[in-house]
Design a protein around this nucleic acid. Structure first.
Lengths: 129, 129
DNA sequence: CTGGAGGTTCCAGTACAGGGGAAGGTCAAG
DNA sequence: CTTGACCTTCCCCTGTACTGGAACCTCCAG
């Protein structure tokens, strides 16, 4: 399977696949005599996994960690669970912060709905922020 | 007021202040005979505003828009209100997506809490993701 | 044999908000 | 007179996940 086919089959681009290889997410592909990359169907599953990892908000570096564990022959379940737990904690922090920010901004905007430009000094730029 | 004092007073760094000047967020400061930047106290209010804008999640580019309007002599209230509205809509989108993701990840992690490594094929890398 | 669609490598750039550090000028204190 | 703190400009680097383009090679159809 050539790089263009694989890209098409997995909904990505040849650029991205070469990038993943360079980053160590995909093992160096075999080459044809002409020097073309020649992928086995295994690459499909691996790319699907990468996409699932990204959908879960993992970074390529984290996905690479899992793949590396898998490549040594071990089952990465434990590490995956830890990463998911960490990611969920991050999400909770982020959700809290964004909710607080949303409340603050809503209050500010409601105040700005009745502007009194005269009470804004150039120094503070804008009373409503 | 020299750049170091201003940086200290506003809790930032000289690097950042020069960067803001370069980006057009701060007007070019006056210079002493020696070529040192010499700030008026106005810079304090302007920097506070920049920090408030950042705390609201605005980008430097958006903050610059507001400052440019203010610098032409107009009150930027309307534009600020629009930016806040836009920002709140972005937050709502983000909150929805993150909440959905959080639910998905929680389900995945709970499944991964009872790992059955044998049922994970190397091809799919990990059953739990 | 030629054209076009693929492939190859390598270099550079995107957005974001700065940070690191070199080479040199300035100023007040000791 | 020198030391040290501060200032100047300059260019490159950080992290993230790619994307664009140049110059060149290879394969297949007409």
């Amino acid at each position: 399977m050539r790089i263009g086919e694989l890209a098409h089959a997995t909904g990505t681009t040849t650029k991205t696949l070469r990038f993943y290889e360079e980053q160590g997410l995909l093992p160096p592909a075999d080459r044809t005599q002409a020097g073309y990359r020649d992928y086995t169907p295994n690459a499909l599953g691996r790319l699907d996994f990468i996409h699932r990892g990204q959908a879960a908000g993992l970074t390529l570096a984290q996905i690479k960690q899992i793949l590396t564990i898998r490549d040594t022959g071990a089952a990465p379940c434990g590490h995956v669970r830890d990463l998911l737990t960490e990611r969920i904690a991050d999400l909770d922090t982020q959700l809290t912060q964004l909710t607080t920010l949303r409340n603050t901004l809503t209050t500010l905007r409601d105040q700005a709905a009745h502007p009194e430009p005269d009470t804004c000094s150039p120094d503070q730029v804008c009373r409503y922020l």
